[in-house]
Amino acid sequence: MANDDEIKVAQEFISALPHAKELGLTVEDIGPGHAVVALPYAERLIGDPRTRVLHGGAISALMDTTSGAAVMSLPEGFGTATLDLRIDYMRSATPGQTVHAAAECYHVTRSVAFVRTTAYDDDKERPVATATGAFTYGHATAPSTPEQMATAMDVFENGKKELGL
């Protein structure tokens, strides 16, 4: 388990991604090559009005973010991008419940990181969805000191300002 400081840094980072922030994603655990991120249930994310089940797209965004976070937490995973992502939907997420995604980077080459991710709600034994993805790797070194992290966050904030966010 990551300590509170590590989770706080990862949370700041995720919240700097506008789409992740809009979805209300929260970091629950982070470590080299793995991450757990939660998506709180929200009415506006409903995909089927009859059943009130979350749309698969919201689960995809959660799993993509979590997989990316697992790669980003590796030494050279900073600034990773998704090459491909396959998602298998096992069952509908239970309406009203938070969906959690746990990602594990199971193999890394010089330029590609392979990630498996499982999403579940309150019933941890029955996954909602699983995903496997390939991500770009080895393009930048992750900030390791608080100063480097602060610089990285500044670059993010500048980017957001440029976009008018």
Binding site: P18, H19, A20, G56, S60, G79, G159, L163, G164, L165
Partner: peptide, 24 residues
């Protein structure tokens, strides 16, 4: 829209937003 951005530095749309768009 700004909320669709994943990486504000590049800048690029969020891969999850792209996936959701395709799925919809």
């Amino acid at each position: 829209r700004g909320m669709l951005v994943g990486n504000p530095v590049l800048p690029a749309l969020h891969g999850g937003a792209t996936a959701a768009f395709l799925e919809i």
